[in-house]
Amino acid sequence: MKYKVLNYKDTRSGFGEGLFELGQENEKVVALCADLIGSLKMNAFAETFPDRFFQVGIAEANMIGMAAGLTIGGKIPFTGTFANFSTSRVYDQIRQAVAYSGKNVKICASHAGITLGEDGATHQVLEDIAMMKALPGMTVINPCDFNQTKQATKAIADYEGPVYLRFGRPKVATFIPYDMPFEIGKAIVLKEGTDVTLIATGHLVWEALNAADMLEEKGINAEVVNIHTIKPLDEEAVLKSVKKTGCVVTAEEHNVLGGLGESISGLLARTVPVPMEMVAVNDAFGQSGKPDELMELYGLKDKNIVEAAQKVIVRK
């Protein structure tokens, strides 16, 4: 199947639409925001369901605690702020009041990664997946486009337990059909292939699909696997693909330390050790710039995945 661009939309708008629909469908759903309603696209929910929406101001620690408390009484709280302030800013609050306490809180994080752009490294969190996946019981999801983010937003409301949902700021290609099934913890094989497995999450999934096209022109048949749920990892799907292709490239908008690539490498080291390359940010902070300039500078483009694929195939 060939994927085409349906439109260009930001994944955060997928979150906003999903949340608004949840508001209509599930009255247990409540939302909290730390002074970023517009950025998180939570306006529709906030305006339509004022009794179920909490503006907490720039007080993220209080927001996480309140969200944990709202579950006591049967609510399903969705918190919204930038990814940096959703994780590192409040890691201890999430650890104790949400993860360790087993609370049904959905931590929804926008502006993840370097594609936040011009605001620079203070806001460009590249360590959030590492932090969140290290918490026992935490589900970690990084959808790839508008449609998948909307699907994920709706799916996590039906799942009982703490979830970290990570999405981004810029308008990117929407290519996942709106009716493609989405299941937490289930990888999606977007393109079948035999020579190399490209495993990607978030914004890098579109890059991986483009990379597969570019590899095709070089006579390399790549399989593209979309891991939207980094934890729990769909080990079966990864191993099935890897056993077929014999080598892997992972791609993510995150630090190489603690990200999707490390999860995959840990799995493979324990089961089917095969050559592997990781396309990720190489243990660095970001900087100001346009999203695309930064993706280029930090080596997160389709061409970087192509290079990694060519390199890994030689090592087979």
Partner: peptide, 17 residues
């Protein structure tokens, strides 16, 4: 330092309920 925040959440759930 976390308890009062949690208590607020509980109190908001009670209001809604």
């Amino acid at each position: 330092g976390q308890g009062l925040s949690v208590a607020i959440g509980v109190s908001r759930a009670k209001k809604i309920n």
